[in-house]
Amino acid sequence: MSRAWLLVVLISSSVLLLAGCSGSSTQQLLDDYLTRVTRALEIDAIQPEARPTLPNWPSASQREVPLQGIRLGLLEAYGLRACPDLLTRVAERNNQLGRVMIPSQRFLYELRLASTLQSCVENPSTQVEAETLEELERLTQQVYRRLPAVFWNFLVSSDEMAGLFSLSGEGLSPDRHLPLSEQQTQLEYLLETARLLENQQRPSRYQDFERELRVFRDQAVVGQLLRAFTDANRYLQAVNHQLRQRLEGTLLCPRPTPELPRAQISQNVLLNVYIADVQPWFARLERKAQIWLPAINQLLDSPLAPSAIQEYRETWINPDNPETPWRRFQELNRQHAGYWEKLLQQCGLQPGLAD
């Protein structure tokens, strides 16, 4: 079997987006594949390893960062009359609701405060003493400097972000919410916002920011991907062990004869079970992972990230770590292709060579 042909079939996931399996149907599909391989290769049955314990999204106290306080100083005494809008912002913060703002409200408030301060400083009609103007400029810089931390707390504390990492459910169900292209657009917007804030610039569409996150509600994409890849890896390890065991034993076919029943049965398992049923699900996982995991990894790869977030990101979703479930899946899938190629070559089977 041509390695190039088989690798195209097995890992051409970036262009495939097919309906997937979820829950018990996924388990049944993988169990059936393992059973069929065992029978076709006429070797002892093997059970996949138990599912490892997957991590929960860190608690609020582990993922949020403290915010540096800001004192209004001279503004409280002299500057507010020159900037009426700033007086409104200060009143918002000091009222009863302002003192108990949730992270999303706090982020939007800080963005409005930064905009108001900058307008006040840059407005030629602002008539204040030089000392007060310096205080306004200092305060503006302080607000801009801490915006990345306010954004971080908003992002990691939101129900939508916590929902993305939820481990509830049993698999990655078919897309019922947004097309992947739209999900990708929203992720890119979050990344662009983080970049702008790091450079002390304001996002242009911040009024709609809560709506931007709301599109991710109830999707649990990252948690489901981790669970799906973990299950796929367990079964790939088991099947690869079966294939390797057969390669190290007696030849599958004493002579390279494609007509032998054993050769035909093995080829049918590959084509009619793996490529027809299992691989489309794997392709869907791969496509979903390519959109979500690098983007989420980049969002969490911040100098502000507490140690719990850094550890979670590095261990489970960092694409540069070959031991994460996604990268491990890709390596096991490549091994899978190689083992099938070598086995069927023993029987003289070379599908894909004569196109």
Rank of each mutant, 00 (worst) to 15 (best):
R81E: 06
Q127A: 12
A40V: 02
L117S: 03
L136I: 05
G98S: 03
Q62F: 08
E129F: 05
P58S: 06
L147V: 05
G23W: 00
P148S: 08
L74D: 14
Q47S: 04
M101K: 14
V100L: 08
R93I: 06
R89S: 13
V150E: 15
N56W: 03
D85N: 07
S59V: 03
E42D: 15
W57Y: 15
Q28A: 09
L67I: 13
V15C: 09
D44P: 04
S59R: 04
P84L: 07
L74S: 13
R63K: 09
Q96F: 13
C120W: 11
R99L: 03
R146V: 13
E76H: 08
E42C: 07
L30C: 01
S22W: 02
E76L: 15
V150F: 10
T140K: 10
G20H: 02
D32W: 04
S14D: 10
S61A: 12
V37R: 02
G98M: 05
S104E: 15
V65K: 05
R138A: 14
V128L: 07
L10M: 12
L29H: 05
Q142I: 05
A130Q: 15
R51T: 00
S12D: 04
S125Y: 06
P84H: 10
A149N: 06
A77N: 11
N153C: 02
S12C: 03
D32M: 07
R99D: 01
T88Q: 10
A40T: 01
A19P: 15
C21S: 14
R138K: 14
A45P: 04
R36K: 11
D85A: 10
T116R: 07
E134G: 12
V65I: 06
Y144H: 11
P148Y: 00
R112S: 13
L67H: 09
L108E: 13
S61G: 12
V37W: 01
P148L: 11
L133M: 12
T88H: 10
A82N: 11
T53M: 03
L136T: 07
C120V: 15
R93S: 12
P52S: 00
S12M: 03
W152V: 03
P48D: 00
P124A: 07
L97H: 14
S25K: 12
L147A: 09
S119R: 15
L75N: 05
G20E: 02
I46K: 06
S119E: 15
R145T: 09
Q127E: 05
L117F: 05
R138T: 05
R145S: 11
S25A: 15
P52M: 03
V150S: 14
L10W: 10
Y109C: 06
L155A: 08
Q96W: 12
L108K: 13
D32Y: 06
F107H: 09
E135P: 10
P48V: 00
G98Q: 04
A45V: 06
E64R: 13
M101Q: 12
P52E: 01
R36P: 01
L41S: 02
D31E: 04
L108D: 09
Y33P: 01
E92P: 14
L117E: 01
S119D: 10
L72S: 04
Y109I: 12
V9Q: 09
S24G: 04
P66L: 00
G79E: 02
E42Y: 01
P48R: 00
S59I: 04
F107A: 11
G98T: 01
